[in-house]
Amino acid sequence: MKLRIRFQKTDSMKFIGHLDTMRFFQKLMRLAEIDVRYSEGFSPHPIMSFALPLGVGVESTGEYLDLEVHSTDASEASLQRINTCMPEGLLALSYKQLPDNAKNAMALVAAADYLIFPKQGEMQNLAEKIQTVFTDAPAFLIRKKTKKSERELDLKQYVYAFSSTEEGLFCRLSAGSETNIKPELLLDAFFERAGLTFTKTDWQIRRLDLYGKNEAGELQSLDAYGETIW
Protein backbone atom coordinates (compact mmCIF):
# COMPACT_ATOMS: atom_id res chain seq x y z
CA MET A 1 0.00 0.00 0.00
CA LYS A 2 1.35 3.43 -0.92
CA LEU A 3 1.10 6.45 1.33
CA ARG A 4 1.99 10.09 1.07
CA ILE A 5 2.77 12.28 4.06
CA ARG A 6 2.83 16.05 3.88
CA PHE A 7 4.86 17.80 6.55
CA GLN A 8 6.36 21.10 7.49
CA LYS A 9 9.95 21.83 8.37
CA THR A 10 10.54 25.13 10.13
CA ASP A 11 12.49 26.79 12.97
CA SER A 12 15.78 25.09 13.81
CA MET A 13 14.85 22.18 11.54
CA LYS A 14 15.55 24.33 8.51
CA PHE A 15 19.27 23.83 9.19
CA ILE A 16 18.99 20.06 8.95
CA GLY A 17 20.04 18.83 5.52
CA HIS A 18 18.10 16.61 3.19
CA LEU A 19 19.92 13.34 3.92
CA ASP A 20 19.81 13.88 7.67
CA THR A 21 16.08 14.57 7.50
CA MET A 22 15.63 11.45 5.44
CA ARG A 23 17.48 9.35 8.00
CA PHE A 24 15.38 10.84 10.75
CA PHE A 25 12.15 9.88 9.00
CA GLN A 26 13.33 6.29 8.76
CA LYS A 27 13.62 6.31 12.55
CA LEU A 28 10.38 8.20 12.92
CA MET A 29 8.44 5.47 11.13
CA ARG A 30 9.61 2.93 13.67
CA LEU A 31 8.99 5.29 16.57
CA ALA A 32 5.44 5.98 15.42
CA GLU A 33 4.95 2.28 14.70
CA ILE A 34 4.07 2.78 11.08
CA ASP A 35 4.07 -0.63 9.40
CA VAL A 36 6.61 0.27 6.72
CA ARG A 37 7.86 -2.14 4.10
CA TYR A 38 11.58 -2.84 4.10
CA SER A 39 13.94 -3.58 1.27
CA GLU A 40 15.63 -6.98 1.09
CA GLY A 41 19.29 -7.74 1.83
CA PHE A 42 21.69 -7.64 4.77
CA SER A 43 20.80 -4.13 5.84
CA PRO A 44 17.16 -3.63 4.96
CA HIS A 45 15.91 -0.07 4.93
CA PRO A 46 12.38 1.31 4.85
CA ILE A 47 11.00 1.96 1.37
CA MET A 48 10.40 5.69 1.25
CA SER A 49 11.33 8.69 -0.85
CA PHE A 50 11.11 12.45 -0.64
CA ALA A 51 9.56 14.58 -3.34
CA LEU A 52 12.20 17.24 -3.76
CA PRO A 53 15.27 18.05 -1.66
CA LEU A 54 15.03 21.26 0.33
CA GLY A 55 18.11 23.45 0.66
CA VAL A 56 19.66 24.07 4.08
CA GLY A 57 18.20 27.27 5.50
CA VAL A 58 14.93 27.03 3.56
CA GLU A 59 11.69 26.46 5.49
CA SER A 60 8.78 24.52 4.15
CA THR A 61 5.13 23.96 4.83
CA GLY A 62 4.77 21.71 1.84
CA GLU A 63 7.20 18.79 2.05
CA TYR A 64 6.20 15.36 0.84
CA LEU A 65 7.32 11.87 1.59
CA ASP A 66 6.06 8.70 -0.09
CA LEU A 67 6.29 5.35 1.59
CA GLU A 68 5.13 1.79 1.23
CA VAL A 69 3.43 0.02 4.12
CA HIS A 70 1.99 -3.41 4.77
CA SER A 71 -0.99 -1.98 6.65
CA THR A 72 -2.06 1.24 8.25
CA ASP A 73 -4.34 2.86 10.80
CA ALA A 74 -6.65 5.73 9.89
CA SER A 75 -5.03 8.97 8.82
CA GLU A 76 -5.87 10.85 11.96
CA ALA A 77 -4.59 8.25 14.39
CA SER A 78 -1.41 7.78 12.38
CA LEU A 79 -0.80 11.51 12.16
CA GLN A 80 -1.21 11.84 15.86
CA ARG A 81 1.30 9.09 16.57
CA ILE A 82 3.77 10.61 14.18
CA ASN A 83 3.44 14.06 15.65
CA THR A 84 4.01 12.95 19.22
CA CYS A 85 7.43 11.73 18.07
CA MET A 86 8.34 14.86 16.16
CA PRO A 87 10.97 17.26 17.49
CA GLU A 88 10.60 21.04 17.45
CA GLY A 89 10.20 22.32 13.91
CA LEU A 90 8.73 19.20 12.30
CA LEU A 91 5.00 18.60 11.97
CA ALA A 92 3.11 16.13 9.81
CA LEU A 93 0.11 17.77 8.12
CA SER A 94 -1.54 15.01 6.16
CA TYR A 95 -1.31 11.25 5.79
CA LYS A 96 -3.05 9.85 2.74
CA GLN A 97 -3.33 6.69 0.78
CA LEU A 98 -2.31 6.74 -2.88
CA PRO A 99 -3.76 4.60 -5.66
CA ASP A 100 -1.62 1.49 -6.18
CA ASN A 101 -0.50 2.61 -9.60
CA ALA A 102 0.41 6.13 -8.43
CA LYS A 103 3.67 7.63 -9.60
CA ASN A 104 5.90 8.57 -6.72
CA ALA A 105 6.21 12.17 -5.60
CA MET A 106 9.74 12.51 -6.90
CA ALA A 107 8.68 11.61 -10.41
CA LEU A 108 5.58 13.80 -10.26
CA VAL A 109 7.01 17.12 -9.12
CA ALA A 110 6.53 19.77 -11.79
CA ALA A 111 6.25 23.04 -9.85
CA ALA A 112 6.81 24.58 -6.44
CA ASP A 113 5.43 27.62 -4.63
CA TYR A 114 7.71 29.82 -2.57
CA LEU A 115 7.28 32.76 -0.29
CA ILE A 116 10.30 34.94 0.30
CA PHE A 117 10.14 37.45 3.11
CA PRO A 118 12.50 39.66 5.10
CA LYS A 119 13.61 38.07 8.37
CA GLN A 120 13.33 41.42 10.06
CA GLY A 121 11.23 44.50 9.40
CA GLU A 122 8.38 45.21 7.04
CA MET A 123 7.96 43.84 3.59
CA GLN A 124 8.15 46.68 1.09
CA ASN A 125 5.89 46.53 -1.92
CA LEU A 126 7.87 45.45 -4.96
CA ALA A 127 4.88 45.02 -7.28
CA GLU A 128 5.92 47.83 -9.58
CA LYS A 129 9.45 46.60 -9.91
CA ILE A 130 8.19 43.13 -10.75
CA GLN A 131 5.94 44.62 -13.38
CA THR A 132 8.68 46.56 -15.11
CA VAL A 133 11.65 44.25 -14.66
CA PHE A 134 9.92 40.92 -15.09
CA THR A 135 6.31 40.91 -16.27
CA ASP A 136 6.61 43.51 -18.98
CA ALA A 137 9.97 42.30 -20.21
CA PRO A 138 9.75 40.23 -23.40
CA ALA A 139 12.24 37.76 -21.98
CA PHE A 140 14.17 37.28 -18.76
CA LEU A 141 17.39 35.60 -19.72
CA ILE A 142 19.73 34.15 -17.13
CA ARG A 143 22.64 31.72 -17.14
CA LYS A 144 21.99 28.50 -15.28
CA LYS A 145 24.93 26.46 -14.17
CA THR A 146 24.66 22.74 -13.70
CA LYS A 147 27.38 20.28 -12.69
CA LYS A 148 28.32 19.70 -16.28
CA SER A 149 27.44 22.77 -18.26
CA GLU A 150 26.13 26.28 -18.26
CA ARG A 151 23.19 27.23 -20.41
CA GLU A 152 21.05 30.23 -21.07
CA LEU A 153 17.43 30.12 -19.97
CA ASP A 154 14.47 32.40 -20.40
CA LEU A 155 13.07 32.36 -16.89
CA LYS A 156 9.73 33.61 -18.14
CA GLN A 157 9.05 30.11 -19.37
CA TYR A 158 9.72 28.60 -15.97
CA VAL A 159 8.30 31.19 -13.60
CA TYR A 160 4.57 30.53 -13.55
CA ALA A 161 3.71 33.30 -11.12
CA PHE A 162 5.63 36.13 -9.48
CA SER A 163 4.04 38.76 -7.27
CA SER A 164 4.57 41.01 -4.29
CA THR A 165 2.16 40.48 -1.40
CA GLU A 166 1.95 41.85 2.11
CA GLU A 167 3.66 38.77 3.43
CA GLY A 168 6.48 38.72 0.92
CA LEU A 169 7.38 37.82 -2.62
CA PHE A 170 5.41 34.92 -3.97
CA CYS A 171 6.55 32.78 -6.87
CA ARG A 172 5.59 29.55 -8.54
CA LEU A 173 8.54 27.92 -10.23
CA SER A 174 9.16 24.98 -12.46
CA ALA A 175 10.55 22.16 -10.33
CA GLY A 176 11.55 18.53 -10.54
CA SER A 177 13.74 16.49 -12.77
CA GLU A 178 13.12 18.36 -16.00
CA THR A 179 13.89 21.96 -15.11
CA ASN A 180 14.37 22.74 -11.48
CA ILE A 181 14.48 26.45 -10.78
CA LYS A 182 15.62 27.41 -7.31
CA PRO A 183 14.06 30.59 -5.97
CA GLU A 184 17.52 32.09 -5.42
CA LEU A 185 18.09 31.96 -9.14
CA LEU A 186 15.09 34.17 -9.83
CA LEU A 187 15.72 36.47 -6.88
CA ASP A 188 19.38 37.09 -7.64
CA ALA A 189 18.56 38.13 -11.19
CA PHE A 190 15.46 40.07 -10.27
CA PHE A 191 17.06 42.13 -7.51
CA GLU A 192 20.06 42.88 -9.65
CA ARG A 193 17.98 44.07 -12.57
CA ALA A 194 15.72 46.06 -10.26
CA GLY A 195 18.80 47.85 -8.95
CA LEU A 196 18.42 46.41 -5.46
CA THR A 197 20.77 44.25 -3.49
CA PHE A 198 19.76 40.78 -2.43
CA THR A 199 21.46 39.72 0.79
CA LYS A 200 20.38 36.13 1.02
CA THR A 201 20.67 35.84 4.77
CA ASP A 202 18.30 38.79 5.30
CA TRP A 203 15.49 36.94 3.56
CA GLN A 204 13.73 33.78 4.56
CA ILE A 205 12.67 31.45 1.81
CA ARG A 206 9.71 29.22 2.55
CA ARG A 207 8.46 26.52 0.25
CA LEU A 208 4.66 26.47 0.39
CA ASP A 209 3.67 23.53 -1.74
CA LEU A 210 4.70 21.15 -4.49
CA TYR A 211 2.67 20.29 -7.58
CA GLY A 212 2.44 17.56 -10.11
CA LYS A 213 0.74 17.72 -13.51
CA ASN A 214 -2.52 15.83 -13.75
CA GLU A 215 -3.85 14.10 -16.87
CA ALA A 216 -5.34 17.35 -18.11
CA GLY A 217 -1.92 18.94 -17.86
CA GLU A 218 -2.93 21.15 -14.95
CA LEU A 219 -0.85 21.66 -11.85
CA GLN A 220 -2.24 19.80 -8.87
CA SER A 221 -0.93 19.87 -5.30
CA LEU A 222 0.83 16.61 -4.41
CA ASP A 223 -1.51 16.46 -1.45
CA ALA A 224 -4.51 16.09 -3.78
CA TYR A 225 -3.30 12.79 -5.23
CA GLY A 226 -4.17 10.83 -2.11
CA GLU A 227 -7.26 10.01 -0.10
CA THR A 228 -7.69 10.35 3.64
CA ILE A 229 -7.94 6.97 5.36
CA TRP A 230 -10.96 6.75 7.66
Binding site: D11, S12, M13, F15, I16, G17, D20, F24, K27, L31, V56, G57, C85, P87, E88, G89, K119, T201
Partner: peptide, 19 residues
Amino acid sequence: GDEILLSVEKPARYLGNEL
Protein backbone atom coordinates in the same frame (compact mmCIF):
# COMPACT_ATOMS: atom_id res chain seq x y z
CA GLY B 1 22.07 33.92 13.89
CA ASP B 2 21.12 32.49 10.51
CA GLU B 3 24.05 34.17 8.80
CA ILE B 4 26.46 32.30 11.08
CA LEU B 5 24.65 28.97 11.00
CA LEU B 6 24.47 29.08 7.24
CA SER B 7 28.15 29.91 6.90
CA VAL B 8 29.56 27.09 9.05
CA GLU B 9 30.01 23.49 8.06
CA LYS B 10 27.21 21.31 9.52
CA PRO B 11 25.05 23.78 11.48
CA ALA B 12 23.21 20.77 12.96
CA ARG B 13 26.10 20.50 15.42
CA TYR B 14 24.92 23.58 17.28
CA LEU B 15 21.13 23.32 17.45
CA GLY B 16 20.30 21.00 20.35
CA ASN B 17 16.97 20.03 18.80
CA GLU B 18 17.50 16.26 18.67
CA LEU B 19 14.81 13.76 19.48
